[in-house]
Amino acid sequence: MEVGVIVVVAVVVLLAFVILFRSVALIPQAEAAVIERLGRYTKTVSGQLTLLVPFVDRIRARVDLREQVVSFPPQPVITEDNLTLSIDTVVYFQVTVPQSAVYEINDYIIGVEQLATTTLRNVVGGMTLEETLTSRDSINAQLRGVLDEATGRWGLRVARVELKSIMPPPSIQESMEKQMKADREKRAMILTAEGQRESSIKTAEGNKQSQILAAEGAKQAAILAAEADRQSRILRAQGDRAAQYLNAQGEAKSIEKVFAAIKASRPTPELLAYQYLQKLPEMAAGEGNSVWVVPSDFGSALQGFARSFANQGDDGVFRYEPPQDTATTTSGDDSEVDDWFDLAPDPKVAQAVAEAEAVARTPVAPEMESRPAKPGIGAASDVPAVGGGSDSSDSAAPTA
Protein backbone atom coordinates (compact mmCIF):
# COMPACT_ATOMS: atom_id res chain seq x y z
CA MET A 1 0.00 0.00 0.00
CA GLU A 2 2.76 2.42 0.86
CA VAL A 3 4.63 1.57 -2.35
CA GLY A 4 1.63 2.52 -4.45
CA VAL A 5 1.30 5.83 -2.70
CA ILE A 6 4.98 6.60 -3.29
CA VAL A 7 4.67 5.81 -6.99
CA VAL A 8 1.63 8.03 -7.36
CA VAL A 9 3.36 10.88 -5.57
CA ALA A 10 6.41 10.49 -7.79
CA VAL A 11 4.28 10.52 -10.93
CA VAL A 12 2.50 13.65 -9.78
CA VAL A 13 5.76 15.42 -8.98
CA LEU A 14 7.22 14.44 -12.32
CA LEU A 15 4.10 15.65 -14.13
CA ALA A 16 4.22 18.92 -12.27
CA PHE A 17 7.87 19.39 -13.18
CA VAL A 18 7.15 18.69 -16.85
CA ILE A 19 4.22 21.10 -16.82
CA LEU A 20 6.36 23.77 -15.19
CA PHE A 21 9.16 23.22 -17.71
CA ARG A 22 6.78 23.45 -20.65
CA SER A 23 5.10 26.59 -19.36
CA VAL A 24 8.23 28.74 -18.95
CA ALA A 25 10.64 29.81 -21.82
CA LEU A 26 13.66 32.16 -21.52
CA ILE A 27 14.43 33.98 -24.79
CA PRO A 28 17.87 35.70 -24.74
CA GLN A 29 18.59 39.10 -26.26
CA ALA A 30 19.29 39.29 -30.04
CA GLU A 31 17.23 36.15 -30.53
CA ALA A 32 13.57 35.87 -31.41
CA ALA A 33 11.19 32.99 -30.74
CA VAL A 34 8.17 32.31 -32.96
CA ILE A 35 5.37 30.91 -30.73
CA GLU A 36 2.39 28.88 -32.04
CA ARG A 37 -0.78 27.95 -30.25
CA LEU A 38 -2.37 24.78 -31.46
CA GLY A 39 -0.29 25.02 -34.66
CA ARG A 40 -1.11 28.65 -35.48
CA TYR A 41 1.21 31.65 -35.18
CA THR A 42 0.54 33.55 -31.99
CA LYS A 43 3.41 35.95 -31.29
CA THR A 44 7.12 36.62 -31.53
CA VAL A 45 9.07 37.32 -28.35
CA SER A 46 12.66 38.33 -27.82
CA GLY A 47 14.90 39.00 -24.82
CA GLN A 48 12.46 38.07 -22.04
CA LEU A 49 10.97 35.32 -19.88
CA THR A 50 7.81 33.99 -21.56
CA LEU A 51 5.01 31.90 -20.03
CA LEU A 52 3.43 29.27 -22.23
CA VAL A 53 0.31 27.21 -21.93
CA PRO A 54 1.53 23.64 -21.51
CA PHE A 55 0.68 21.30 -24.37
CA VAL A 56 -1.08 24.18 -26.18
CA ASP A 57 1.70 26.69 -26.93
CA ARG A 58 5.03 25.77 -28.42
CA ILE A 59 8.11 27.51 -29.82
CA ARG A 60 8.17 26.91 -33.55
CA ALA A 61 11.68 28.30 -34.21
CA ARG A 62 14.35 30.41 -32.66
CA VAL A 63 15.78 33.00 -35.06
CA ASP A 64 19.12 34.85 -34.61
CA LEU A 65 18.56 38.59 -35.05
CA ARG A 66 22.23 39.49 -35.39
CA GLU A 67 23.83 40.25 -38.76
CA GLN A 68 24.99 37.00 -40.29
CA VAL A 69 27.91 36.40 -42.61
CA VAL A 70 27.55 33.53 -45.03
CA SER A 71 30.32 32.50 -47.42
CA PHE A 72 29.17 30.48 -50.37
CA PRO A 73 31.45 27.99 -52.15
CA PRO A 74 32.97 28.94 -55.53
CA GLN A 75 30.44 29.03 -58.34
CA PRO A 76 31.35 28.53 -62.02
CA VAL A 77 30.34 31.61 -64.03
CA ILE A 78 30.72 32.09 -67.80
CA THR A 79 31.68 35.57 -68.98
CA GLU A 80 30.67 37.28 -72.20
CA ASP A 81 33.92 36.21 -73.89
CA ASN A 82 33.19 32.54 -73.02
CA LEU A 83 35.64 32.13 -70.14
CA THR A 84 34.65 30.13 -67.07
CA LEU A 85 35.43 31.83 -63.76
CA SER A 86 35.16 30.49 -60.23
CA ILE A 87 33.76 33.22 -57.97
CA ASP A 88 33.42 33.05 -54.19
CA THR A 89 30.65 35.20 -52.72
CA VAL A 90 30.18 36.52 -49.20
CA VAL A 91 26.74 37.86 -48.17
CA TYR A 92 26.05 39.98 -45.07
CA PHE A 93 22.34 39.90 -44.08
CA GLN A 94 20.10 40.27 -41.03
CA VAL A 95 16.68 38.87 -40.12
CA THR A 96 14.30 41.75 -39.46
CA VAL A 97 10.96 39.89 -39.45
CA PRO A 98 11.43 36.47 -37.76
CA GLN A 99 7.93 35.12 -38.56
CA SER A 100 8.45 35.85 -42.29
CA ALA A 101 11.82 34.08 -42.21
CA VAL A 102 10.06 31.06 -40.69
CA TYR A 103 6.82 30.92 -42.68
CA GLU A 104 7.72 32.51 -46.06
CA ILE A 105 10.66 30.23 -46.92
CA ASN A 106 11.80 26.86 -45.82
CA ASP A 107 15.52 27.70 -45.43
CA TYR A 108 16.38 31.34 -46.02
CA ILE A 109 20.15 30.68 -46.07
CA ILE A 110 19.80 28.24 -48.97
CA GLY A 111 17.46 30.70 -50.65
CA VAL A 112 19.99 33.52 -50.32
CA GLU A 113 22.75 31.29 -51.70
CA GLN A 114 20.79 30.19 -54.75
CA LEU A 115 19.54 33.70 -55.43
CA ALA A 116 23.09 35.11 -55.15
CA THR A 117 24.41 32.44 -57.54
CA THR A 118 21.80 33.06 -60.23
CA THR A 119 22.11 36.85 -59.92
CA LEU A 120 25.91 36.62 -60.11
CA ARG A 121 25.76 34.52 -63.28
CA ASN A 122 23.31 36.97 -64.81
CA VAL A 123 25.49 40.01 -63.99
CA VAL A 124 28.88 38.50 -64.91
CA GLY A 125 27.46 36.91 -68.08
CA GLY A 126 27.21 40.37 -69.62
CA MET A 127 30.83 41.30 -68.88
CA THR A 128 34.19 40.35 -70.30
CA LEU A 129 37.03 38.96 -68.20
CA GLU A 130 38.78 42.29 -67.93
CA GLU A 131 35.55 44.08 -67.00
CA THR A 132 34.80 41.46 -64.37
CA LEU A 133 38.23 41.83 -62.79
CA THR A 134 38.02 45.62 -62.71
CA SER A 135 34.32 46.07 -61.83
CA ARG A 136 33.96 44.41 -58.44
CA ASP A 137 32.22 47.40 -56.90
CA SER A 138 29.67 47.51 -59.68
CA ILE A 139 29.00 43.76 -59.39
CA ASN A 140 28.66 44.02 -55.60
CA ALA A 141 26.17 46.88 -55.90
CA GLN A 142 24.04 45.02 -58.45
CA LEU A 143 24.02 41.82 -56.38
CA ARG A 144 23.07 43.68 -53.21
CA GLY A 145 20.21 45.50 -54.96
CA VAL A 146 18.72 42.31 -56.41
CA LEU A 147 19.14 40.26 -53.21
CA ASP A 148 17.73 42.97 -50.94
CA GLU A 149 14.67 43.36 -53.15
CA ALA A 150 14.08 39.61 -53.48
CA THR A 151 14.61 38.73 -49.80
CA GLY A 152 12.45 41.55 -48.45
CA ARG A 153 9.35 39.34 -48.29
CA TRP A 154 11.41 36.73 -46.42
CA GLY A 155 11.98 39.20 -43.60
CA LEU A 156 15.67 39.66 -44.47
CA ARG A 157 17.78 42.78 -45.07
CA VAL A 158 20.91 42.29 -47.18
CA ALA A 159 23.61 44.69 -45.94
CA ARG A 160 26.54 43.91 -48.22
CA VAL A 161 27.61 41.48 -50.93
CA GLU A 162 31.30 40.96 -51.64
CA LEU A 163 33.17 38.91 -54.23
CA LYS A 164 35.82 37.18 -52.16
CA SER A 165 37.83 35.81 -55.08
CA ILE A 166 37.64 35.54 -58.86
CA MET A 167 39.65 32.64 -60.23
CA PRO A 168 40.08 32.46 -64.02
CA PRO A 169 41.17 29.20 -65.73
CA PRO A 170 44.86 28.18 -65.36
CA SER A 171 45.64 28.97 -69.00
CA ILE A 172 44.19 32.44 -68.58
CA GLN A 173 46.12 32.90 -65.36
CA GLU A 174 49.34 31.97 -67.14
CA SER A 175 48.57 34.39 -69.98
CA MET A 176 47.77 37.12 -67.49
CA GLU A 177 51.01 36.48 -65.61
CA LYS A 178 52.95 36.72 -68.87
CA GLN A 179 51.14 39.94 -69.76
CA MET A 180 51.84 41.38 -66.34
CA LYS A 181 55.48 40.36 -66.61
CA ALA A 182 55.72 41.97 -70.05
CA ASP A 183 54.07 45.13 -68.72
CA ARG A 184 56.49 45.28 -65.80
CA GLU A 185 59.48 44.77 -68.11
CA LYS A 186 58.09 47.45 -70.41
CA ARG A 187 57.70 49.89 -67.53
CA ALA A 188 61.19 49.03 -66.29
CA MET A 189 62.66 49.68 -69.75
CA ILE A 190 60.69 52.93 -70.01
CA LEU A 191 61.92 54.05 -66.61
CA THR A 192 65.50 53.11 -67.51
CA ALA A 193 65.30 54.98 -70.81
CA GLU A 194 63.70 57.95 -69.04
CA GLY A 195 66.51 57.95 -66.50
CA GLN A 196 69.15 57.79 -69.21
CA ARG A 197 67.39 60.60 -71.09
CA GLU A 198 67.26 62.77 -67.97
CA SER A 199 70.91 62.01 -67.26
CA SER A 200 71.91 62.93 -70.82
CA ILE A 201 69.85 66.13 -70.64
CA LYS A 202 71.40 67.11 -67.32
CA THR A 203 74.90 66.33 -68.62
CA ALA A 204 74.31 68.32 -71.81
CA GLU A 205 72.83 71.17 -69.79
CA GLY A 206 75.88 71.19 -67.54
CA ASN A 207 78.23 71.18 -70.53
CA LYS A 208 76.24 73.98 -72.12
CA GLN A 209 76.37 76.07 -68.96
CA SER A 210 80.10 75.39 -68.63
CA GLN A 211 80.73 76.47 -72.21
CA ILE A 212 78.55 79.56 -71.72
CA LEU A 213 80.47 80.50 -68.60
CA ALA A 214 83.81 79.89 -70.33
CA ALA A 215 82.73 81.94 -73.35
CA GLU A 216 81.44 84.71 -71.12
CA GLY A 217 84.69 84.72 -69.17
CA ALA A 218 86.71 84.79 -72.38
CA LYS A 219 84.54 87.64 -73.68
CA GLN A 220 84.99 89.65 -70.51
CA ALA A 221 88.73 88.97 -70.53
CA ALA A 222 88.96 90.09 -74.17
CA ILE A 223 86.95 93.22 -73.35
CA LEU A 224 89.18 94.03 -70.40
CA ALA A 225 92.33 93.30 -72.44
CA ALA A 226 91.11 95.50 -75.31
CA GLU A 227 90.14 98.25 -72.88
CA ALA A 228 93.51 98.02 -71.15
CA ASP A 229 95.35 98.11 -74.50
CA ARG A 230 93.25 101.08 -75.60
CA GLN A 231 93.90 102.94 -72.37
CA SER A 232 97.59 102.07 -72.59
CA ARG A 233 97.82 103.38 -76.14
CA ILE A 234 95.91 106.53 -75.25
CA LEU A 235 98.10 107.22 -72.24
CA ARG A 236 101.27 106.41 -74.21
CA ALA A 237 100.14 108.72 -77.03
CA GLN A 238 99.38 111.45 -74.52
CA GLY A 239 102.82 110.95 -72.97
CA ASP A 240 104.53 111.03 -76.39
CA ARG A 241 102.60 114.15 -77.30
CA ALA A 242 103.57 115.88 -74.06
CA ALA A 243 107.21 114.81 -74.53
CA GLN A 244 107.28 116.13 -78.10
CA TYR A 245 105.76 119.35 -76.94
CA LEU A 246 108.34 119.64 -74.18
CA ASN A 247 111.15 118.92 -76.66
CA ALA A 248 109.78 121.47 -79.11
CA GLN A 249 109.27 123.97 -76.31
CA GLY A 250 112.81 123.32 -75.09
CA GLU A 251 114.24 123.77 -78.56
CA ALA A 252 112.17 126.90 -79.01
CA LYS A 253 113.39 128.22 -75.68
CA SER A 254 116.94 127.29 -76.59
CA ILE A 255 116.72 129.02 -79.99
CA GLU A 256 115.02 131.98 -78.34
CA LYS A 257 117.79 132.23 -75.74
CA VAL A 258 120.47 131.88 -78.40
CA PHE A 259 118.95 134.56 -80.60
CA ALA A 260 118.37 136.75 -77.57
CA ALA A 261 122.01 136.33 -76.58
CA ILE A 262 123.14 137.02 -80.14
CA LYS A 263 120.98 140.11 -80.35
CA ALA A 264 122.16 141.27 -76.97
CA SER A 265 125.82 140.85 -77.96
CA ARG A 266 125.36 142.94 -81.19
CA PRO A 267 127.53 140.74 -83.44
CA THR A 268 129.46 142.16 -86.37
CA PRO A 269 129.60 140.69 -89.89
CA GLU A 270 133.15 139.53 -89.21
CA LEU A 271 131.90 137.44 -86.26
CA LEU A 272 129.15 135.96 -88.36
CA ALA A 273 131.62 135.15 -91.10
CA TYR A 274 133.89 133.53 -88.56
CA GLN A 275 131.03 131.42 -87.17
CA TYR A 276 130.03 130.49 -90.68
CA LEU A 277 133.52 129.32 -91.52
CA GLN A 278 133.57 127.21 -88.34
CA LYS A 279 130.33 125.45 -89.35
CA LEU A 280 131.50 124.63 -92.85
CA PRO A 281 133.55 121.56 -91.79
CA GLU A 282 130.57 120.23 -89.85
CA MET A 283 128.32 120.75 -92.84
CA ALA A 284 130.80 118.92 -95.06
CA ALA A 285 131.15 116.03 -92.58
CA GLY A 286 127.87 114.40 -93.70
CA GLU A 287 127.99 110.89 -95.24
CA GLY A 288 126.20 112.02 -98.39
CA ASN A 289 128.45 115.05 -98.95
CA SER A 290 131.23 113.99 -101.33
CA VAL A 291 131.74 117.42 -102.96
CA TRP A 292 131.42 120.75 -101.16
CA VAL A 293 131.52 124.06 -103.09
CA VAL A 294 132.16 127.36 -101.36
CA PRO A 295 130.64 130.32 -103.26
CA SER A 296 133.18 132.93 -104.43
CA ASP A 297 130.96 135.85 -103.75
CA PHE A 298 130.40 134.83 -100.12
CA GLY A 299 131.77 138.11 -98.81
CA SER A 300 129.44 140.27 -100.92
CA ALA A 301 126.44 138.11 -99.89
CA LEU A 302 127.35 138.43 -96.21
CA GLN A 303 127.81 142.20 -96.62
CA GLY A 304 124.35 142.50 -98.20
CA PHE A 305 122.87 140.43 -95.30
CA ALA A 306 124.56 142.73 -92.77
CA ARG A 307 123.30 145.85 -94.50
CA SER A 308 119.74 144.48 -94.52
CA PHE A 309 119.54 143.59 -90.82
CA ALA A 310 122.23 145.81 -89.19
CA ASN A 311 123.12 149.47 -88.85
CA GLN A 312 126.50 151.03 -89.77
CA GLY A 313 128.28 152.63 -86.87
CA ASP A 314 130.61 155.62 -86.71
CA ASP A 315 133.53 153.33 -87.36
CA GLY A 316 131.92 152.01 -90.54
CA VAL A 317 131.12 148.54 -89.04
CA PHE A 318 127.63 147.12 -89.43
CA ARG A 319 126.11 146.00 -86.09
CA TYR A 320 122.63 144.60 -85.29
CA GLU A 321 120.67 146.71 -82.90
CA PRO A 322 117.31 145.36 -81.68
CA PRO A 323 114.39 147.77 -81.42
CA GLN A 324 113.99 149.36 -78.04
CA ASP A 325 110.26 148.46 -77.70
CA THR A 326 110.70 144.77 -78.55
CA ALA A 327 111.13 142.35 -75.68
CA THR A 328 114.24 140.30 -75.74
CA THR A 329 112.46 137.20 -74.54
CA THR A 330 109.02 135.76 -75.24
CA SER A 331 107.13 133.21 -73.32
CA GLY A 332 104.54 130.88 -74.76
CA ASP A 333 101.05 130.57 -73.44
CA ASP A 334 101.00 127.27 -71.57
CA SER A 335 97.43 127.48 -70.29
CA GLU A 336 96.14 125.23 -73.06
CA VAL A 337 98.55 122.43 -72.30
CA ASP A 338 98.58 122.48 -68.53
CA ASP A 339 96.41 119.37 -68.34
CA TRP A 340 98.91 117.42 -70.46
CA PHE A 341 101.24 117.10 -67.55
CA ASP A 342 98.65 116.25 -64.90
CA LEU A 343 99.72 112.94 -63.31
CA ALA A 344 96.50 112.39 -61.39
CA PRO A 345 94.47 109.29 -62.58
CA ASP A 346 91.56 110.03 -64.86
CA PRO A 347 88.26 109.30 -62.93
CA LYS A 348 86.49 108.21 -66.14
CA VAL A 349 89.19 105.63 -66.82
CA ALA A 350 88.92 104.29 -63.26
CA GLN A 351 85.11 104.12 -63.54
CA ALA A 352 85.25 102.24 -66.87
CA VAL A 353 87.71 99.67 -65.48
CA ALA A 354 85.58 99.19 -62.34
CA GLU A 355 82.43 98.62 -64.43
CA ALA A 356 84.20 96.08 -66.66
CA GLU A 357 85.53 94.20 -63.62
CA ALA A 358 82.03 94.16 -62.03
CA VAL A 359 80.52 92.72 -65.21
CA ALA A 360 83.28 90.11 -65.41
CA ARG A 361 82.55 88.94 -61.85
CA THR A 362 78.79 88.67 -62.40
CA PRO A 363 77.69 84.97 -62.55
CA VAL A 364 75.99 83.85 -65.74
CA ALA A 365 72.37 82.66 -65.31
CA PRO A 366 71.17 79.34 -66.97
CA GLU A 367 69.02 81.27 -69.44
CA MET A 368 71.99 83.50 -70.56
CA GLU A 369 71.90 82.03 -74.05
CA SER A 370 68.30 83.17 -74.58
CA ARG A 371 68.82 86.68 -73.23
CA PRO A 372 70.26 89.61 -75.23
CA ALA A 373 73.66 90.96 -74.27
CA LYS A 374 73.76 93.57 -71.53
CA PRO A 375 74.00 97.12 -72.83
CA GLY A 376 77.44 98.63 -72.49
CA ILE A 377 79.32 95.32 -72.78
CA GLY A 378 80.78 93.86 -75.96
CA ALA A 379 79.99 96.82 -78.25
CA ALA A 380 82.70 99.20 -79.26
CA SER A 381 80.28 102.12 -79.34
CA ASP A 382 79.13 101.41 -75.74
CA VAL A 383 82.59 101.37 -74.13
CA PRO A 384 82.80 104.47 -71.94
CA ALA A 385 85.10 107.18 -73.24
CA VAL A 386 88.30 107.72 -71.33
CA GLY A 387 90.88 110.50 -71.34
CA GLY A 388 88.37 113.31 -71.12
CA GLY A 389 90.96 116.01 -71.83
CA SER A 390 92.58 114.33 -74.80
CA ASP A 391 90.21 115.69 -77.47
CA SER A 392 90.58 119.28 -76.37
CA SER A 393 94.32 118.90 -75.97
CA ASP A 394 94.58 117.34 -79.47
CA SER A 395 92.86 120.34 -81.01
CA ALA A 396 95.33 122.60 -79.24
CA ALA A 397 98.49 120.88 -80.53
CA PRO A 398 101.48 123.20 -80.30
CA THR A 399 103.26 124.61 -83.30
CA ALA A 400 106.98 125.28 -83.12
Rank of each mutant, 00 (worst) to 15 (best):
R241V: 05
Q244W: 09
V12D: 00
A237D: 11
Q99P: 02
K253V: 02
A25N: 00
Y103K: 01
M167A: 13
N207S: 07
V294K: 15
F309H: 10
K257C: 01
M368S: 05
A248D: 13
E198M: 03
A159V: 14
R236T: 06
A379S: 07
S392R: 10
N106D: 14
T132V: 09
L235F: 12
G288N: 15
M1Y: 03
A226M: 10
E2R: 00
R187F: 06
P375M: 10
V70S: 07
P168S: 05
D314L: 10
T117V: 15
I255W: 08
P345N: 07
V317T: 11
E80I: 09
Y245H: 13
G125I: 02
I6N: 03
T328F: 08
V383M: 06
L49T: 15
A141T: 09
P267Q: 00
Q114S: 15
F21K: 12
R361G: 14
S232C: 11
G125C: 03
L163W: 06
L52Q: 08
E198S: 01
Y41G: 09
P170F: 07
D394M: 06
V63A: 06
D107M: 05
L129I: 13
L246Y: 09
L272P: 01
A373Q: 07
L246H: 11
E369T: 04
E321C: 09
A61V: 05
I255Q: 06
T329I: 09
Q220G: 14
T117S: 12
